[in-house]
Amino acid sequence: MNRQEKINKLVEEALGSLDDAQRAEPRPYLLTRINARMNKGTASVWEKAGWLVTRPVVAFTGLCMIVLLNVLVVMNKTSHSNNRAEQTVQTQADELSYTASPIYDIDNTQP
């Protein structure tokens, strides 16, 4: 028997290996294990919350929301601080009565 024939024989043997297989049976006392599991009760609120939070969709959405909120807060702060800086400069200028006189005002001595 050559190599290819040997391989084909093994393939057919493998494909037929389940033909007369018996059904597998579970370990004894399955009902007892089921009852014990049911009596253990449902998951606590924290377990359910943990399960929910660790779902990839929920976790990813939550992460995106946090990033978005951070971006919004930073943008809001930046625009606020710009306005405040302009206001401060204006206030200081008013307090010092600083007005930049154009050069022609100095030369022009006539009222």
Binding site: E13, L18, A21, R23
Partner: peptide, 8 residues
């Protein structure tokens, strides 16, 4: 699989 014959 526990249901498969030893030789197979």
């Amino acid at each position: 699989h526990p249901g498969v014959k030893m030789e197979k």
